[in-house]
Amino acid sequence: MNPEIRFLPDDKKIQIKPGTTLLDASKKARVHIRTRCDGNAACLMCKVTVEDGTGLSAPGDNEKRKLGELIGRGYRLACQAKALRSCTVHVPEDPLKAAVRAQLAKQREEEQW
């Protein structure tokens, strides 16, 4: 059976072939993960956290060098981490979306007064 990747906070799921990178899986699931280097581990924008990293390939030397101690806290580069088994991936909110969401929340709060 092919692994199922669940992307949060969008709660989108997709089944992929084992060995597919999380970045490629996200594209297939239509989940946006920011990147500038097109998956070459150069920009570090595709950092995600994984609930149970045991479903992923071991971090390579390049990823270890780039992320350092963050790997121990569940961070992985979506362009480098390959899914071997099912797992849940937390994608950080885009900074622009976060700013808009915060502004809208502030406006709603002000309207209540």
Rank of each mutant, 00 (worst) to 15 (best):
K28Y: 04
M45E: 09
A99P: 00
S26W: 02
E111N: 14
P3N: 08
A78Y: 05
S86K: 03
G19V: 01
P92W: 03
A99F: 10
H32Y: 13
A105R: 13
K97M: 04
F7V: 09
L96W: 13
G68A: 03
M1Q: 12
S57R: 01
A102P: 01
G60H: 08
L56S: 02
E109H: 14
D10K: 13
L77N: 11
E69P: 01
L67A: 09
N40F: 08
Q107I: 15
E109A: 15
E51N: 02
T20P: 03
K64C: 08
E69I: 13
D94V: 04
V50D: 01
N2H: 02
S57A: 01
K13H: 12
K106D: 13
A25M: 07
D11G: 05
G74F: 10
Q107R: 14
Q112E: 14
Q112M: 10
R36W: 03
E111W: 07
R108S: 05
E69F: 11
C46M: 06
Q112P: 02
I71S: 01
P9Y: 14
T88N: 05
E93Q: 15
A81I: 11
E93P: 00
G39Q: 09
I33N: 06
E51L: 09
D10E: 15
R36C: 00
G60S: 14
L70P: 00
G60N: 12
G39K: 15
C43Y: 00
G53V: 14
K47Y: 04
L70Y: 04
L70I: 03
P95L: 07
V50Q: 01
A99K: 15
I71Q: 00
L70N: 07
M1I: 11
K66G: 01
R30Q: 13
N2R: 03
V48M: 06
P59A: 05
A83C: 10
I16S: 08
V31S: 07
E51W: 02
T20C: 03
P9R: 15
L104F: 03
R65W: 08
K97T: 06
I5K: 04
E69H: 09
M45F: 07
K97S: 10
N2V: 10
A98S: 14
I71T: 04
R73G: 00
D38W: 09
K82H: 11
V48R: 02
T35W: 11
E69Y: 13
E63H: 05
G74E: 09
P92F: 08
I5F: 07
P18G: 09
S86N: 05
T88V: 15
E110S: 09
V89W: 02
V89N: 00
L77V: 10
T21K: 03
N62K: 13
A78M: 00
